[in-house]
Amino acid sequence: MPSETPQAEVGPTGCPHRSGPHSAKGSLEKGSPEDKEAKEPLWIRPDAPSRCTWQLGRPASESPHHHTAPAKSPKILPDILKKIGDTPMVRINKIGKKFGLKCELLAKCEFFNAGGSVKDRISLRMIEDAERDGTLKPGDTIIEPTSGNTGIGLALAAAVRGYRCIIVMPEKMSSEKVDVLRALGAEIVRTPTNARFDSPESHVGVAWRLKNEIPNSHILDQYRNASNPLAHYDTTADEILQQCDGKLDMLVASVGTGGTITGIARKLKEKCPGCRIIGVDPEGSILAEPEELNQTEQTTYEVEGIGYDFIPTVLDRTVVDKWFKSNDEEAFTFARMLIAQEGLLCGGSAGSTVAVAVKAAQELQEGQRCVVILPDSVRNYMTKFLSDRWMLQKGFLKEEDLTEKKPWWWHLRVQELGLSAPLTVLPTITCGHTIEILREKGFDQAPVVDEAGVILGMVTLGNMLSSLLAGKVQPSDQVGKVIYKQFKQIRLTDTLGRLSHILEMDHFALVV
């Protein structure tokens, strides 16, 4: 994948999101292997301009796509893939009243899908469409860049269908997702969380590099694949309309690839034109409109599966009536509230959605109805927002919020430890010299600072030695090549209790 991002070429006709291997024109390309080798690009942008032909009021008969309808489940399912879809609609009884809503608040519980998330729908649909058009064949390999849930859905379907599955996901995604993927037989590649989507090191860039190296491999490409919004247009939206008897006044959905909100909203605009569509985008993402909503100094966020630093091709923002931004604290607070007060075992993005819903639905009156999409299960986040310690460490809970008995030293300040200034190293000294210094002084790690004293990161003896043994660096290389740029900081005025929580999850903390 090139470091400079080429513009994806656009073909003359058809839909841009065809499933299957992508040609340089962004659509299915038939021909000899030699032709494909000559024409197939190194990668295709996940934010390529959409060429979708959908228009409100256009006859369904003019759609270029294969459409399906929700099917009634048999008493005995032939395999677990038949437990994807037909998820329950559940009334939220307490939270709406707590925040003064007059309307009825309903939750579409997508964590009841077989793999635990709304992404099971698009995973199965992308595979079925690729099999139907002859792209996927027995023994082929599926590769997908994902925040985890699409990966789980694909790995689940691949396990049943017999495909090899490789999932490329950023490091910030939970260990629970990784464990589930491994249990399903998927191979996992992790990428830096802070890598831009168009960087060769991003999950998108690495996935395309693997595709170019592995024979008979395919990126189904949830960011561009029409099967993504079509899955929701054909099934999720129809289920909502049936469950609500066609009567709903507002739908609120958090947005990642945009397939969920695009597919549902398009069908609702056709069948229930008075329904307002509300999009939820986390602070630090750029999906919301108008652009002024996205202006923030924050560039990272903890909530998973929603928000991006690019506009995915499948996201149709014209069908969203209003956007709201959400933050991590309210997302996790509301997710825990949904679990504790409503018994809905949902993930953090569901918290984002409901946090926005109780604001947006203030305009609705008694007798009206708001539906929220709860995308995934708490299963993926047992060591994250479900953990009091994690919430404390991230600053989303305060010590006084917890009532468990603490040891005698818990409320003492870090400054009472009488710490001395640490050994520091410059980023320009060599790895070999740094190892000598650390061994001589008896230290395992040291902060790396520039000549102005600005902290650049941390270097550890173990990481340097393993990097040297693996051949990633040489003793003569500058130590700046092996620094940890993500590390926890703590102030002298913070409590030892807070430091204790940090050290339970990290090997060190830097006192500043």
Score class of each variant (00 low, 15 high):
8 A>R: 11
9 E>C: 13
10 V>C: 15
10 V>F: 11
11 G>Y: 13
14 G>R: 06
15 C>G: 09
17 H>C: 01
17 H>Y: 14
18 R>I: 15
18 R>F: 07
19 S>I: 07
19 S>T: 01
20 G>S: 07
20 G>N: 08
21 P>A: 09
22 H>S: 06
22 H>A: 01
22 H>L: 08
23 S>E: 15
24 A>L: 11
25 K>L: 09
25 K>C: 12
26 G>L: 11
27 S>Y: 07
30 K>L: 03
31 G>Q: 01
32 S>D: 05
32 S>T: 06
34 E>G: 10
42 L>N: 01
42 L>R: 14
45 R>A: 10
54 W>L: 06
56 L>F: 14
61 S>A: 10
62 E>L: 09
62 E>R: 04
63 S>T: 09
64 P>F: 12
64 P>W: 01
64 P>S: 07
66 H>G: 08
66 H>A: 07
66 H>W: 08
66 H>Y: 12
68 T>V: 10
68 T>L: 09
69 A>R: 14
69 A>W: 01
70 P>V: 01
71 A>W: 01
73 S>C: 14
75 K>H: 04
76 I>A: 06
76 I>Q: 04
78 P>G: 15
78 P>R: 01
78 P>T: 09
79 D>S: 09
79 D>G: 09
82 K>L: 03
90 V>S: 08
92 I>A: 03
92 I>L: 05
93 N>E: 01
93 N>S: 12
94 K>F: 01
94 K>M: 10
96 G>L: 05
97 K>E: 13
98 K>W: 10
101 L>R: 01
103 C>L: 04
104 E>C: 10
107 A>S: 06
111 F>A: 04
113 N>F: 01
114 A>L: 06
114 A>R: 06
114 A>T: 09
116 G>V: 08
117 S>V: 05
119 K>V: 01
120 D>V: 01
121 R>Y: 05
121 R>F: 05
122 I>E: 01
123 S>M: 01
125 R>L: 07
125 R>G: 07
126 M>W: 04
126 M>F: 05
128 E>W: 08
129 D>C: 06
135 T>W: 15
135 T>N: 12
136 L>I: 08
136 L>Y: 07
137 K>C: 01
138 P>Y: 12
139 G>A: 03
142 I>W: 01
142 I>G: 08
143 I>L: 07
145 P>G: 10
145 P>I: 04
146 T>L: 06
154 L>R: 01
155 A>N: 07
157 A>R: 04
159 A>T: 12
159 A>N: 11
162 G>Y: 10
164 R>S: 13
164 R>H: 13
165 C>L: 07
165 C>S: 05
166 I>G: 03
167 I>S: 08
167 I>T: 10
168 V>L: 07
170 P>F: 05
170 P>D: 03
173 M>A: 05
174 S>A: 09
174 S>T: 05
179 D>R: 06
179 D>G: 09
180 V>I: 06
181 L>D: 01
182 R>G: 10
183 A>Y: 05
185 G>F: 01
186 A>M: 06
186 A>I: 08
187 E>M: 01
191 T>I: 01
192 P>G: 05
194 N>K: 14
195 A>T: 09
196 R>P: 11
201 E>F: 11
201 E>G: 13
203 H>A: 11
204 V>R: 01
206 V>M: 11
206 V>S: 08
207 A>K: 01
207 A>Q: 01
209 R>C: 08
212 N>E: 11
212 N>C: 11
213 E>C: 08
213 E>T: 14
214 I>G: 05
215 P>M: 08
216 N>P: 06
216 N>L: 05
217 S>C: 06
218 H>L: 08
218 H>A: 01
218 H>D: 01
218 H>I: 10
220 L>D: 01
220 L>P: 01
220 L>K: 01
221 D>M: 01
222 Q>L: 01
223 Y>N: 01
223 Y>A: 01
224 R>S: 01
225 N>T: 10
225 N>H: 04
225 N>V: 01
227 S>F: 09
229 P>F: 05
231 A>M: 08
236 T>R: 01
240 I>S: 07
241 L>C: 07
241 L>E: 01
241 L>V: 11
244 C>A: 01
245 D>F: 15
247 K>C: 15
248 L>W: 01
248 L>C: 11
249 D>F: 01
249 D>C: 01
250 M>E: 01
250 M>P: 01
251 L>I: 13
251 L>V: 09
252 V>E: 14
255 V>D: 05
256 G>A: 01
257 T>R: 12
260 T>K: 01
260 T>C: 10
261 I>Q: 01
262 T>H: 10
264 I>L: 10
267 K>M: 10
267 K>C: 10
267 K>I: 13
268 L>H: 01
268 L>S: 01
271 K>F: 14
272 C>W: 10
272 C>I: 07
272 C>A: 12
273 P>L: 13
274 G>V: 05
275 C>N: 01
275 C>S: 14
